[in-house]
């Protein structure tokens, strides 16, 4: 288990009259090497949760184990910087973090902060840029003059260059066009499948969750309401009704066909396969 939340709570403005419990006694274990999606409404605590993974926020109560670090509330926690190298956090609209004159400098900024030599950092930057599909012709260009989608890739390369073993993605496709979004997601699929990175995906887009996640964690009001395998999550009718979960279209269609008496459609994810089964059934 690379990540374990134990009775973790986080209170904003503790001790103030407008104190607010953003996370309430979270118990959660996230497994290694898989894609875990964290879903929930705006304000359900998703952002607060992922900022803990990177020690940007420290728990008010409880504890958190990540890889070989343990962060305990109200205790002095050291070596947070080392943790940040192992957990790469890609913020929403991550392109806003770009600031260097050239792309190669910006991407090698992270590794250098974590103590890599200039040569090492550039080498890592080049690898990372290759991963996100930007070739040598981009190295010396300014990151600020790219299109939105390309900027986002540079920003993500900047995180990948640190070689984190856990990658946290906050709405990675927000603001991209559908083509840009699917290219972006295929980068993360490669990272998970070929590089065995543990991926945590925070998103509102259930199509993305269904397409990409192995496990789904549902947050509501700062509490974990469910942690299920992706397929089980989208078949749990009580959960869907209680939290008004929008079903991925293929699941919705499957359910409607099932109601009409079609059988053998369970766990079919692909339109072609679904059609084939429907035709066979007839």
């Amino acid at each position: 288990m690379p990540i374990e939340f134990k009775e973790l709570s986080y209170v904003y403005d503790e001790g103030m009259p407008f104190a607010h419990h953003a996370l309430n006694k979270i118990d959660l274990a996230i497994e290694e090497g898989i894609v875990t999606a964290i879903v929930g409404k705006t304000g359900s605590g998703k952002s607060t949760m992922i900022e803990h993974l990177n020690a940007l926020l420290l728990p008010s109560e409880g504890s958190l184990k990540i890889l070989d670090h343990t962060i305990i509330a109200k205790e002095k926690n050291t070596n947070l910087k080392a943790l940040r190298q192992k957990v790469g956090l890609v913020f929403q609209f991550s392109e806003y973090q770009l600031f260097e004159e050239t792309i190669i400098k910006d991407v090698s900024f992270g590794p250098k902060n974590f103590g890599a030599s200039e040569e090492e950092a550039v080498l890592k930057a080049k690898e990372a840029l290759k991963l996100v599909g930007l070739d040598e012709s981009y190295y010396e260009r300014s990151p600020l003059n790219l299109s939105g989608g390309q900027k986002r890739r540079v920003a993500i390369a900047g995180i990948l260059a640190m070689d984190p073993s856990i990658i946290v993605l906050d709405e990675p496709t927000a603001g991209l066009d559908p083509k840009g979004a699917s290219e972006m997601m295929s980068i993360f699929k490669t990272l998970n499948k070929d590089y065995q990175k543990t991926i945590i995906l925070v998103t509102h887009d259930n199509e993305l969750v269904y397409d990409f996640a192995d496990e789904v964690v549902l947050l509501d009001g700062g509490e974990v309401k469910a942690k299920l395998k992706c397929e089980d999550f989208f078949s749990d009718q009580t959960l869907i009704d209680t939290y008004k979960i929008v079903l991925p279209k293929i699941v919705a269609l499957r359910n409607m066909l099932k109601e009409k008496g079609f059988k053998g459609l369970d766990e079919v994810r692909d339109i072609e396969e679904l059609v084939e089964r429907v035709v066979d059934f007839e």
Binding site: F91, L98, F99
Partner: peptide, 28 residues
Amino acid sequence: NSQKSRGVDFEEGKLKEKVMAIVSLIVP
């Protein structure tokens, strides 16, 4: 927060690192 995640330390560090930290905040 984004820059902290990339290893920037806004509290401590040598002068050169501090300048870099500020630049990484101001430019964006």
